[in-house]
């Protein structure tokens, strides 16, 4: 009897302990939000939320803390990464799930897993030593190699594994009957892929891309190393509108990492405000991925 009650006691204790640890993640998220918000409040109060979001000048020494240039920088570099990375990632996903023979899958998939594991500082180093000098060869006045193009290429490689592996999973999860049905009706394999499998896997693929977006927005160290870090609204540097990608820029993440150790007072607070904007942006992006997945599941 005593042993029995001790057993029940243990069961109850463990249930509580486990519940507490399960709620720890939420607690951490709340703590992060509270601390970042608390750090950001003085800046928001003193400078105004809208003034910060719409301000294009960031000169802490002068008391100017506009972060629009950084929002644009993060947005553009992410856009560039998606432009380069998504076709490659989706192609690889279809290749892995539908086309590649087993032994090739055994080469390609670990390669992509390895790409996911390579530290971002190594990508940054590679970008500095290999990509920046290459991009510098593009003839345009003021092109120094550091800028959105180098950063977008680095970022495209970094989000490739996320998008490829989730999309592959989504395509594989399409019930086998879809494939067989389509092939039985006389469709070619390509018609099956393009008209049946990809549409059926679309929610999964879209959420893979959106999750890739979230990762891209959050990347820090590799961006600092190749993007040039200038606080300017990126603009085309020649007549060709595409040359906007040769422009230097700064990301929201880079703004925090580069300046946090120097900052005091309102400046420090403005960096926390940058963190809040980044946090909110990424939460929006990630929750839209969850939303799309749920809608697809229905």
């Amino acid at each position: 009897m005593t042993s029995g009650s001790r057993r029940t006691g243990l069961e109850k204790t463990m249930k509580t302990v486990l519940l507490v640890s399960a709620l720890a993640s939420l607690l951490i998220v709340l703590l992060i939000f509270i601390f970042t918000m608390k750090g950001a409040l003085p800046a928001f109060r003193e400078l105004g939320v809208w003034e910060m979001l719409s301000g294009t000048t960031w000169r802490p020494g002068n008391g100017e803390f506009g972060i629009l240039a950084m929002i644009a920088g993060s947005g553009l570099v992410t856009f560039g990464a998606v432009l380069i990375g998504v076709p490659l990632a989706l192609g690889t996903a279809v290749f892995l799930s539908e086309i590649a023979p087993g032994w090739i899958v055994k080469i390609v998939r670990p390669s992509i897993e390895l790409l996911a594991g390579i530290p971002s500082v190594v990508y940054g180093l590679f970008g500095m030593v290999v990509l920046v000098p290459l991009v510098r060869e593009i003839p345009a006045p003021g092109n120094a190699g550091f800028g959105l193009l180098s950063a977008s290429i680095v970022l495209a490689v970094m989000v490739l594994p996320t998008i490829a592996s989730i999309s592959e999973f989504a395509i594989r999860s399409v019930p086998g009957g879809y494939r067989e049905g389509s092939l039985a009706l006389g469709a070619t394999k390509w018609e099956t892929v393009s008209r049946v499998l990809i549409p059926a896997a679309r929610p999964g693929i879209i959420s893979a891309v959106v999750l890739g977006l979230g990762r891209a927005l959050g990347e820090t160290i590799a961006m600092i190393m190749v993007i040039g870090n200038s606080v300017i609204l990126p603009a085309a540097i020649t007549g060709n509108p595409l040359s906007i990608f040769l422009s230097r820029a700064r990301t929201l993440t880079g703004n925090i990492a580069v300046e946090i150790s120097y900052a005091t007072g309102v400046h420090e607070s403005a960096l926390f405000a940058t963190g809040v904007v980044l946090f909110v942006l990424i939460m929006l992006v990630n929750s839209s991925a969850g939303f799309l997945l749920k809608r697809g599941a229905r």
Binding site: V29, G214, I282
Partner: peptide
């Protein structure tokens, strides 16, 4: 799910 999406620089800032 939310924690999984937080970028590492925010953990750093925090």
């Amino acid at each position: 799910d939310t924690l999984a999406g937080v970028p590492s620089i925010i953990f750093g800032l925090f």
